[in-house]
Amino acid sequence: MDAFLIMAAFSGVGLSLATGPLGAFVVWRRMAYFGDAVAHAAILGVALSLGFSISILGGTLAVGLGVGVLASGLTERRHSMDAALGVLAHAGLALGLVALSFLRGVRVDLDAYLFGDILTIGPSRFAMIWGGALGVLALLVWRWSALVTATVSKEIAVSVGINPRHEQRVLTIALALVVAISLKVVGALLIGALLVIPAAAARSWSATPEAMAARASAIGALSCVLGVALSLATDAPTGPSIVTVAAAIFVLSLLVGQKRR
């Protein structure tokens, strides 16, 4: 097997360390739309980075944080802000695509940003993905207890001196970081899938939040390895192949997992 294939598969494994636990929170806190809003805005981040000649990582991170703060504000104000988040998610994507089309003289491989281009990942990006993923994992482990408490009950969190808004900010930062580092792996359109599907699949097999987060990471890593293999065998695009494998594992979990209510 070629080195770049191994690099591709293992960059996905690294990313899964972060997307497992983060995806679990996305599922528990019903933040799927929120995640999409941050992920889609990455395209706008790419356009701005190219327009102002700054690093794409920095640009997507900044736009991701901005949209994350905006989306947090929206969800805080009212409990159900589904429609507003949906508008934000799609508007960010459309705005990014329009902005990209205005960039004259810049050739952009749009497919790579939308669907990922895991096979072009070189050593420096590989290191960045692992570094970023370990950083997000460390952040989540550090805040774990407070995050779980605030997710179980906002009221119980307040009663023991935890500020739920602060924990929401932690998740927003983690989400923006994951989007920025995973843009090249699965692309802006499928990051949400990599967060939600492994966590949802892990639910059926888990008795505690920690078990679910760990299993989500394992299922994500397995999906990346098998997805790269599938892509190699069928010549299908890699990002969608990874998500297809994850979705297949999810269906399997519904069939064989002993569902705990």
Partner: peptide
Amino acid sequence: PQKLALVETMPMTVARFLSIPR
């Protein structure tokens, strides 16, 4: 609290719940 609005997607044993927040 009056109610515990635990979401269905979150697995939680009683023992684990009692370890909230520590």
